[in-house]
């Protein structure tokens, strides 16, 4: 059992890892014909099934809430209602949002239900940005002051009123606010982001090597 439960999966990750890695360094034509083309097609299909994991675990947790009648279990029914409404409309419209110039039922659901809900959910965050800015943006250190100044340039640089104000107050510097924000993006930001990128790249390379060699296998779950 150990063989099919553990060793073969570890062999799979090793073999596919090394082979995929190798394709980067051998002539593309060769890699493409014998390996990559098939793999790319397969991976794309397997990845689509991974979505079922998210779907089933959501269904399962809300099914449990309803079954156990935990506080607020009635709301869980709306998860199923939302799902069914979209799927039924999709089947009716065969996955199309429009037929010619007319909205299908799926198109209606997208515009008035799904899009409205997701836009509203994210829009609410604007309120929290503002209240957090008031309650916890404390300029206590020089570092916090630098962060505030950078943010300030971008906030006022983004709106016309800010540009007008800047030109009135700082016309004598001969520098426009967009030159300042451009400089921040093109010079100090490049240094900072590049440092982060190199850090992440090193981390990704190490983790990937650990996965290929079977050292990191948390994703496999417990035995």
């Amino acid at each position: 059992m150990m063989l099919i439960k553990r060793y073969i999966p570890l062999a799979i990750v090793f073999v596919f890892g090394i082979m995929t890695l190798a394709t980067y360094y051998i002539p593309p034509k060769l890699a493409q014909d014998y390996y990559l083309e098939t793999m790319n097609k397969w991976i794309n299909i397997v990845a689509a099934f991974a979505f079922l994991l998210a779907l089933l675990s959501l269904f399962y947790s809300h099914y449990n809430k309803i079954k156990r009648k935990v506080d607020g279990w009635g709301y869980s029914i709306f998860v199923y209602i939302g799902f069914l409404v979209v799927v039924v409309c999709a089947i009716k419209s065969e996955g199309q949002l429009m037929t010619g110039p007319a909205l299908t039922s799926l198109g209606w659901i997208f515009r008035f239900l799904y899009n409205t809900l997701s836009a509203s959910m994210f829009a609410v965050l604007a309120y929290y940005i503002v209240s957090t800015a008031f309650r916890s943006f404390r300029i206590k250190t020089l570092q916090a002051f630098v962060l505030f100044m950078a943010a300030l340039f971008f906030i006022i640089g983004k709106v016309p009123l800010g540009n007008v104000l800047w030109n009135k107050l700082f016309f004598w510097t001969n520098v426009s606010i967009s030159q300042v924000t451009d400089w921040i993006i093109n010079v100090p930001s490049v240094a900072a982001k590049r440092g982060i990128m190199i850090g992440i790249a090193v981390g990704a390379i190490v983790t990937s090597l650990k996965i290929i060699f079977g050292i990191e296998r948390q994703y496999m779950g417990k035995d």
Binding site: I45, V46, A47, A50
Partner: peptide
């Protein structure tokens, strides 16, 4: 579904 596979292909 899988952007790395599709972009490679």
């Amino acid at each position: 579904a899988d952007y790395s596979a599709v972009l490679t292909q």
